[in-house]
Design a protein around this nucleic acid. Structure first.
Lengths: 252, 252
DNA sequence: CGCTTGAATTTGGTATACCATATTGACAGC
DNA sequence: GCTGTCAATATGGTATACCAAATTCAAGCG
C-alpha cells in the first residue's frame, strides 16, 4: 500500500494529510505477529487521524477491505474497535462513517482532554523523575526554536510531545491511554487549528509557565494551567468554517 | 438463556453473582433492532461485570457462541469491543480471557476513577440544575436509610446511583462515558470490597460532605472530596486474598 | 415535469468453511 | 516412573457464502 487511493479513485491530496506525519501509514503484512484485525485497526486509525479518510465519509466494507488486502471479517472487527475509540460512528444497518464531531462535541472533548491533562500533570509533579523533567525542558526549548523559526508544523509536533511526556510522567496507564485516545480523536482538528492559530504567543507563554510548574513540582498550578491551556491552542470552531457542517472540499 | 451454564458444566453459584443486580441478564433476540454483535457485547459485559464469567477465565469462542445462540462472527466482534473497554484481555493467537486486573491495576483504576469523578463534580457544581441536586439529595437520604438498616447491598447500589448522578450532572458526555466504562471494570471488585468494608461510617460522613458541597456548588471542595473518596469505599486489595492471584475457587 | 413505485443492485449482518497453529494426550524410549 | 516426541484434536484467525434490508434508479403515472 504505497499510496492510499480513495473510493472515488482520486488520491487524497488536500491540504494536510501528507504533512501531519512524516512516517507513512503502516502496511498490513501477513507475517506480522499481530492479527489482521489489529493491524487493520491501526492502519484505519492512522487514515482517519491523518484525514486520509475525512470526517463523515462512509466506510464501505468491501471496498476498504480490498484496498487493505484483508477480508471483511477482520476489517469489521477493526471498525468495532475504532467505534469504541470514537474514531468511527456505526450507524445501525447503515454501516460506518469516519467520526464527524460537531463543534459541541469538540468542546466537550477539549474540556475532557484538558481535565485529563490536568490530572496527569498533578500526578506528574509528584512522580516524575528528574530525568523526565529534563526531557520535558529539552522539548520545550526545541519548541521555542520552532516558534522562533515560525515553523508551525514542528511546533505542533513538539507541543504534542511535551503534553504526551507530561502525561507519561503521571505514571497512570489509564490516564496515558485515555489521553492518547482522546488526542487521536482531536488530532486532525487541533492540527488545522494550530496552523491558523492567532494566539500563538499566548500559547508559548503558557508553556513557559507549564515548564516552571513542573520544574517546581507545583501540582495545583500545573493542573490549573493544563486545564485551561487548550483554549490557547485552539481557535474557536465557530470561526473555522469546516467543522460541524458537511465537508465541502471532499468529493464523496 | 434462562440460566448461564459455565464451560465446566457447573452453574455459577458463588457468593455474589445473583445479588449484584436484580435484573436478569438480557437475552439475545433476533428481533432486536441492535446487531447481534452489539447485543452479545452487552450480555457479555454483564456476565463479566456480575462475575458470572470470573476474572482470568478463558473465553472459548465456539462454546460461548453456542450458549448465546450466535455465531462466532458477532461474538468475536463483541470480544473486540469489550477488549477496548478493558473487560476482556486478548492474548494473541491464544484467545480471550475475562480481565484479571492486578492489585496495581486496581490502584491505577481507582486513582483514575477518582480523578474523573472529581472533574465531573467540579463541572456539576457549575452546571447541575436544582432538580438534579434535589435528586442527589433524595438518593443520599435513601442511602442513609440503607445504612441505618445495615443493608449493604442497597447501600452499594444507592452509592453507585449517587456517583452516577453526580457525573451525569457534569454535562460532559465523555466524562459520563469514561466513568461508566471504568465503573464497569471496577464494579465486581468494589462490590466485594463494599460487602466487607469496615470503614462504612467514614464513607457515610464523607457522603454528607459531598452532598453539602454540591448543594453549595463548591466546586473545589467537591472535586477534592470525590478525588479522595474512593479510598473510603475500598478496603485495600492486599487485604483481599483474591485479587492479583489466580482465582482458586473457580474450577477452570 | 415531478412524484410514485418497484425491480435491480449494493450493502451490512450473520453463519459457515477452511486453515494454520497451539494444545493435548498417548505411546515409545530411557 | 519420567521424559521426549508425534499424532490427534481443539482453537483462534481468516475468507467466503448467503441473506435481508437499504439504496438506487428507471419506468410509469399523474
Amino acid at each position: 500500500m504505497s499510496n492510499i487511493i480513495l473510493d472515488d479513485g482520486s488520491e487524497s491530496d488536500h491540504d494536510i494529510n501528507t504533512q501531519i506525519t512524516d512516517a507513512p501509514i503502516a502496511t498490513i503484512s501477513e507475517d506480522s505477529d499481530l492479527p489482521l484485525a489489529q493491524q487493520a485497526a491501526n492502519v484505519l486509525r492512522d487514515m482517519i487521524v491523518q484525514d486520509i479518510i475525512p470526517p463523515g465519509k462512509p466506510i464501505r466494507e468491501r471496498t476498504l477491505a480490498q484496498q487493505l488486502n484483508v477480508s471483511r471479517t477482520p476489517l469489521r472487527e477493526a471498525l468495532r474497535i475504532l467505534a469504541v475509540d470514537g474514531l468511527v460512528e456505526l450507524l445501525p444497518s447503515r454501516g460506518a462513517i469516519a467520526a464527524n464531531p460537531s463543534s459541541e462535541d469538540v468542546k466537550h472533548m477539549l474540556e475532557f482532554l484538558g481535565g485529563i491533562e490536568g490530572l496527569a500533570g498533578e500526578l506528574a509533579c509528584k512522580r516524575a523523575t528528574d530525568e523526565e523533567i529534563d526531557e520535558i525542558r529539552a522539548l520545550h526549548y526545541e519548541m521555542l526554536a520552532a516558534f522562533a523559526r515560525k515553523d508551525r508544523l514542528a511546533y505542533f509536533k513538539l507541543n504534542q510531545r511535551i503534553h504526551r511526556a507530561l502525561v507519561l510522567a503521571s505514571g497512570n496507564p489509564l490516564l496515558i491511554e485515555t489521553h492518547e485516545r482522546m488526542n487521536a480523536r482531536l488530532y486532525r482538528i487541533r492540527y488545522r487549528s494550530n496552523m491558523r492559530n492567532t494566539k500563538w504567543p499566548t500559547a508559548i507563554s503558557e508553556h513557559e509557565e507549564i515548564l516552571k510548574a513542573i520544574e517546581n513540582r507545583d501540582a495545583v498550578k500545573l493542573n490549573d494551567l493544563l486545564r485551561n491551556h487548550l483554549g490557547s491552542t485552539w481557535t474557536k470552531v465557530s470561526e473555522d468554517g469546516q467543522l460541524g457542517t458537511t465537508d465541502h472540499h471532499h468529493n464523496d
